[in-house]
Amino acid sequence: MVTENEIWQILQEVKDPEVPVLSVVDLGIVRHVQTEGDKILLTITPTYSGCPAMDVINMDIRLKLIEKGYRDVTINQQLAPAWTTDWMSEAGKQKLKAYGIAPPIYGSKSATGNLFSEEAVPCPRCNSVATKLISQFASTACKSMYRCLDCKEAFDYFKCH
């Protein structure tokens, strides 16, 4: 017998392959964990429709559970309600910042606002808000790229979604 709580603990060890400081739990993509005897049923939701990390994440979850002795695992994908960066845990956001990625600003909308307008994204290194958007699309689908006008460093911003 395994409890749902134990599974949540194990999932804390499965990291996002693109942002290895964040666990899949921090990301907020694990929607449900259900256990029945040794059977485990997980429901996860993708971040972006085309996020190539999702397949790897599925595999990593399976491998981690096998490593812990759980072989009977079903992973379902659920699209609705759509994932939002608001589901990212506070701990996750702190870890992102420490890693050098500006965390998503809570409650901020995805890009529907005025053209050429920029969010005041604080630099994760020096906390300056004198930052400038370089590109709305960066190293992965979920990030945009900024530059800090004070410390001169470029940084990724985990964009709101």
Binding site: P46, L79, A80, A82, S110, A111, Q136
Partner: peptide
């Protein structure tokens, strides 16, 4: 299911629309 896919995609399209408008 269709509405769910649309909701998911809409957030992405908002970025595409802004980028291409600019």
């Amino acid at each position: 299911q269709l509405a769910g896919i649309a909701a998911k995609s809409l957030k992405e399209v908002a970025y595409h629309l802004r980028w291409s408008s600019e």
